[in-house]
Write a protein that binds this DNA or RNA. Structure first.
Length: 216
DNA sequence: ACCCAGGGTCATA
DNA sequence: TATGACCATGGG
């Protein structure tokens, strides 16, 4: 039976602390979570840079901007029509709940339900916001988590989001810092290791490359 | 030219 | 419930 903590330790030994999420403010973090959906972080940085340059990286300003202007600014992050609409729906919610101070007073379960009710925000985006923006100990699952842990034999490749999340949360103590670092390390492993050439040399997980086509 | 990226929604069977 | 189409840009 493979345990989650030894895997974490191997990743941490190799890559060190990640200090996620890269953002100046919680609101910027949550905007980044929407923008990074199925798109490389490099493109997200361009979009965020555009939003900052236009001085609308704030909830009120984002609502005042037109759909067309917002879409143009975030164009590098792809799916810009969908994401522009999602950004404005999220900004509406953020203001209605009393911004960061208001969100802080809500329970994690209530916050999660409310975030998932926003069209364009699914489980991974909501949990990323909770973990890194609102500092709640929720374990974030992504495509890499599925590949790694299915290839390690922990679960089927088609395991549901909630089930794999429960697998982690049941055996790890719910410590914010641990959950934040663990997810970041999984992403770092995909970036730094699996894209290295030659691929998969000295893989700390001994499970080959975790990109979609290059597995075991 | 192809594959992929720090997903999510909606229609269909 | 469970696949498939669709959204769209930029890097390797």
């Amino acid at each position: 039976m493979i345990k989650a903590l030894p895997i974490y330790q191997q990743l941490y030994d190799r890559y060190g602390p990640q200090q996620w999420w890269p953002a100046d403010t919680p609101f910027e973090m949550m905007i980044g979570a929407i923008l990074t959906q199925n798109c490389s972080w490099l493109n997200v940085e361009k979009a965020i840079s555009n939003l900052k340059a236009a001085d609308i990286l704030a909830a009120e300003e984002m609502l005042n901007a037109s759909h067309e202007q917002l879409g143009e600014l975030i164009r590098p992050a792809g799916f810009f029509n969908q994401k522009a609409a999602t950004l404005q729906r999220f900004s509406r919610f953020y203001i209605d709940q009393g911004q960061l101070e208001g969100l802080k007073t809500e329970t994690t379960a209530a916050l999660r339900e409310e975030l998932l009710a926003i069209t364009g925000i699914g489980p991974e985006t909501a949990d990323s916001m909770l973990l890194y923006g609102l500092e709640r100990p929720i374990f974030v699952i992504d495509a890499y988590s599925r590949r790694i842990f299915s290839r390690l034999g922990v679960a089927e490749a088609t395991i549901k989001y909630h089930e794999l999340q429960q697998w982690f949360q049941q055996q790890l103590t719910a410590e914010l810092h641990l959950f934040q670092e663990y997810h970041a390390l999984i992403v770092q492993h995909a970036k730094a290791h699996c894209r290295a050439k030659p691929r998969c040399e000295g893989c700390p997980l001994q499970t080959s490359c975790i990109t979609a086509q290059q597995g075991i």
